[in-house]
Design a protein around this nucleic acid. Sequence first.
DNA 1: TATTGTTATACTCTATAACTATA
DNA 2: TATAGTTATAGAGTATAACAATA
Lengths: 181, 181
Amino acid sequence: MNTARQPDPSAAPASTPAQAQAPAPRGAAFLLAQIGAHAAGRFAERVATLGLTPADVGLLRMVAGQPGRSQRALAEDLGVVPSRVVALIDVLEDKRLVERRRSAEDRRNYELHLTPEGRRALGGVSRAAAAHEDDLLAALDPDGRARLLELLERVAAQQELTPGVHPGYRTLAKPAAKRKD
Amino acid sequence: MNTARQPDPSAAPASTPAQAQAPAPRGAAFLLAQIGAHAAGRFAERVATLGLTPADVGLLRMVAGQPGRSQRALAEDLGVVPSRVVALIDVLEDKRLVERRRSAEDRRNYELHLTPEGRRALGGVSRAAAAHEDDLLAALDPDGRARLLELLERVAAQQELTPGVHPGYRTLAKPAAKRKD
DNA sequence: TATTGTTATACTCTATAACTATA
DNA sequence: TATAGTTATAGAGTATAACAATA
């Protein structure tokens, strides 16, 4: 679906002083953000063919990894407000991928479990993720991929990123400069 | 901020096939998306202290790199609709960072230029970006950073990502599964 | 008639806060 | 009174499409 894409280098600027300042950021941080957004977008396209959003996938994985958690616990892990988990789980329950079971111990909360269909869906996701990985890293041979993985793992650990949870659930860019005129 | 974190293997589902399937994605593609979103968020926080959003920064850089472009040309480069560029430039013009000048050749369009203040702001952004890079890659020594950069550049090139433009302007996650019930 | 830029409108997503049911 | 979950409401952000000025 995303077709138009040529950078159009024909319209190159001749000689601008600002050109020397910040024409295009070429640091690793920028590349990480750029490639990361690209990767997220491509992954979203892939799982969309399975009828899922990236958020759905994250929830499915979380429920699969820790069955029986409450919605509130999930909300905390994801860094979102409980009401949002309601909507997310509603979708998955409508699709019969996740089940709400009233807790016997404390009947206020639910225990979330995957249905057999949910497990099947997660299998499809795994295949999509593998294909995604392969496409995204097509530029690198197995050795290059291993080196990249190792470097990324070090960065993620130092930045204290929760394994398996990416911050796409929280609102990223906050208001920044709220002008009052 | 995210405190609770134990995977709680005690609650292990004994024999759930899904557990072996996808508890937490640990591939490079996922890490790229995770770290990328994290990096984007941190960068947004930094430039917010300068009164700018990441979108503002991208526009400023683009105008600096190729002064005199029209809004429509910018819209095409960014992959957004022209009406959005109006709003983006409005903000920058209100802040006196960018100037609209009527083109003499074709009075329908504007030529966009940075003001001196705009150049100053971009200098601040460069400093913020450098600090950001340093913080983000604190886990790596200069050699590790160089290796990471080289790997990322190869991936970006193969994926045909436009240098200096990240896809944060377009709507990323599309509706996916629009149910009709 | 075609094109640049603008404005008006609608839609989607998300958080806030009030509400219910259990404890 | 406190907590898990739900619902209602409002706000921000964005695309679509109609519009004005110029070519």
